[in-house]
Design a protein around this nucleic acid. Structure first.
Lengths: 393, 393
DNA sequence: TCGTTAATTGGAAGCGGTTCCATGACGAAA
DNA sequence: TTTCGTCATGGAACCGCTTCCAATTAACGA
């Protein structure tokens, strides 16, 4: 019974004795089709196993219902969470989503060029990828709606966080715990030079760190600020340098949770107890952070993807998206890598000290109105929020 | 100078004084075009800023150069690594890749149905997603080439690992270290019941575990085998049960690295040193495993994606893909969560013991021909391979 | 009963390419 | 010079759908 050629709208029209226009109306759920007619057509569609061609519809209609997401470093946990958020929204709205993993500048340029052709996709989400004004202009010239997530792109809607406020939040928290010497371990954000560092997320977080110190009346100590390429291994090396200083920091704020892993590794290797002898605060709050009980600045990763997708979709519907700059909230998540610094002279005696310190810290937060830490079970020496973990799995 | 309407092939033809056919030939690099003509057309294309419409080309040609990847649990590290591998190959071959995050059965069915329409995509990669024969038949009936990765799909090329061999590998290693009571913490692979458990990756790994024990002349102890939903938190709960047994295991093999995190958390919470008092072997070798120095069974995640993409591409080119079943190699990665069991009676005295045990284990492996562990620096109590980390960042 | 308006419907004209076939031009072989 | 291939080229037909407009029919008020 199956013909070699797929059924087309014309076949359906012929078989049900109506015109192609009517079939099209039925397919697209248009009004102005008599119920009896509709039923007849639907029945034939079913019999013939007819499936409309997306391609033809898209060509005819002039739009695709497909969007592209350009994102570098897809395997980084933060990128995946953003992506997942966007995918969920776009799938729900019926878009096909093409994922472009722009790992290298070459591939970024390649993707951007390929997408600059209007009907390739009818919307682009740029994630965590700084692109030149020139490139952006080229894309916009093609008339494709664009939004950005986790990166500022002048002239298009973009969803970001206030990095400086994040740096402030983390540093103020460590200051509130009583730390005076706070180290900073940041990444260069892909820059080969440090000249444009101020324009990276890491650079802005550093500014927040500096501001917090200044507000507390502390002079920032340049030797406590270390920058290197992204990654746990680099963070570990930088931390080792910091901890080897004559007057080492009692706390370290680092610009991502992945780097925090490196910081913790360095501390561990040097025999320092966390948070007893070193407090650590990361950034992002990736799943892993809850798993190991890492204190961190939570940024709504998944939500950023959701927002980006929503705004793109609104843009496509022709709605005005305002304001262009959307800033998502940050939240300090107090887990078990940050606590009051150990009073000078008190001996370290392993686990006991850590436990006491944690308890002291908990009392402290409660008194401070921080509320109970969101954590609950020990993992790798720190406590983890079990409910949170269960939610994830 | 810019017209409101985009230039079409007809505009180019008119402007360069040739026919549309010739322009088409130029665009597609066909032969049989005089060089002078070609140059002229290329120049006009450039002047007009003409960009061919993918859509129209696809409709006319009957193929899209786009493929879909259907994958559940996109945020799991193993899924991302597979995806990244596939994306790289597909991008290089010029395919647009639509990612379908099939988190729930509903969405899986939705995607599968949507993709069953020939021109939606011209190729599908099913990743880690068991689908019914019925559904598979529906997809194939649409005439879309399909390959599978990390799941067996009868009748189509699929790339998998030998799970049973993996279970064997891990368990034999623990047996070789001298462990006699080895626990198993597995996941249900999304099944709500345990009846089909034997057909999950976890179930097959359990079979390997059993076989290894049997080969060593050990009777498998049912109480040492625990199954639960996927996730670190569940693994932690199961491990807590295991460690609370009158005669607890000295080692645990668990079916994913994520679950190994839970196992480690439980051990830590109960005050057991790893690997001194409990050895842990995971599965997958996700990036995190190297970071925390987890011993694990490495499966080539990224490569599985690469292979899947390559085979799909070959299928599209009309090549015969043989054999249908492609099995990738596994490799035991010895890091620092597995070692000889502590001789009975030897007191635990913290870090010192762990260090000694590690040293002893290293001597052991060397003597055993296992070679040096691939690890090198301490992280969260275990040692991590720094070169490996650097490579990742 | 007869306009008139509103609700349905048919189907031609695109959408922007690819392809195939007919046509010319041209040089080589007869 | 005539006759063939070969190589370039133009352009109609078509891919399968949407859309718009004209045509047909139904409904309704006077």
């Amino acid at each position: 019974m199956r013909t070699s050629r797929r059924a087309t709208i014309a076949d359906v029209a012929a078989a049900s004795g109506v015109g192609v226009g009517t079939v099209s109306r039925v397919i697209n759920g248009a009004v102005n089709v008599r119920e009896a007619t509709r039923l007849r057509v639907v029945k034939v569609i079913d019999q013939l196993g007819y499936r409309p061609s997306h391609l033809a519809a898209a060509l005819s209609r002039g739009k695709q219902r497909s969007v592209a997401i350009v994102v570098p470093h897809l395997t980084r946990p933060s990128a995946v969470e953003r992506l997942a958020g966007a995918l969920a929204v776009l799938a729900a709205e019926g878009y096909d989503t093409v994922v472009c993993n722009a790992d290298s500048p070459t591939r970024r340029d390649h993707f951007l060029a390929a997408l600059t052709s209007k009907d390739r996709t009818d919307g682009i989400i740029i994630m965590s990828l700084p692109i030149s004004q020139h490139q952006l202009a080229a894309v916009r010239r093609a008339g494709v709606p664009v939004v950005a997530v986790d990166v500022t792109l002048r002239g298009v809607p973009y969803t970001v966080i206030d990095d400086k406020a994040g740096g402030l939040l983390a540093t103020e928290q460590l200051l509130a715990l009583g730390h005076q010497r706070i180290g900073f371990v940041g990444d260069l954000g892909g820059r080969m030079t440090k000249s444009t560092f101020g324009f990276t997320a890491s650079g802005r977080r550093l500014a927040g760190y500096r501001q917090a110190l200044a507000a507390a009346g502390l002079a920032p100590c340049q030797s406590l600020i270390r920058l290197g390429p992204y990654g746990a291994a680099n963070a570990e090396a930088l931390t080792t340098e910091l901890l080897g200083l004559p007057d080492p920091p009692t706390a370290i704020f680092t610009t991502s949770d992945t780097q925090a892993m490196g910081v913790l590794a360095a501390a561990d290797r040097m025999g320092l107890r966390v948070p007893g002898e070193l407090s650590v605060v990361g950034f992002d709050d990736i799943e892993l952070a809850a798993l190991i009980g890492l204190s961190t600045v939570r940024q709504p990763l998944e939500q950023s993807g959701v927002e980006g997708a929503r705004r793109l979709s609104a843009l496509r519907r022709g709605e005005k998206v305002r304001p262009l700059r959307q800033v998502l909230d940050l939240q300090l998540v107090q887990r078990n890598t940050s606590a009051q610094p150990r009073p000078a002279g008190q001996a370290s005696s392993g686990r006991g000290v850590a436990r006491e310190t944690v308890a002291a810290a908990e009392r402290h937060y409660r008194a401070d109105g921080w509320g109970m830490p969101r954590t609950g079970c020990l993992a790798r020496g720190y406590r983890t929020d079990r409910a949170e973990l269960r939610r994830q799995s």
